[in-house]
Amino acid sequence: MALTITCPICGKRNGYEFRYGGEEKGPRPDEKDLTPESWCDYVHMNKCVAGVQQEWWFHRDGCGSWFTIFRDTTTNLEKETPEAKE
């Protein structure tokens, strides 16, 4: 594979310019409401989707933004929207 990632600022670039930052799980929960279960769920747990998932990337060797994309984990190709299937 030769991953490419489309950065909202810099456009489509070689995947090795970026750092993966995990599945999209929503904003940080407020610490006072967190139980060990909900803390663990937010911090450690993943769905490990074999298919399209929304996920975070950081343009490390570029503009330095964090952004999300949709990517099919079974092909390593970006998708326009979560529904899009080849």
């Binding site: 594979m1 991953l3 993966y20 996920e55 092909t75 390593n76």
Partner: peptide, 14 residues
Amino acid sequence: MDPWPNYTTLNTAH
């Protein structure tokens, strides 16, 4: 390892 999750088992030039 390539540091992003995937199920492709594809190899890379890198």
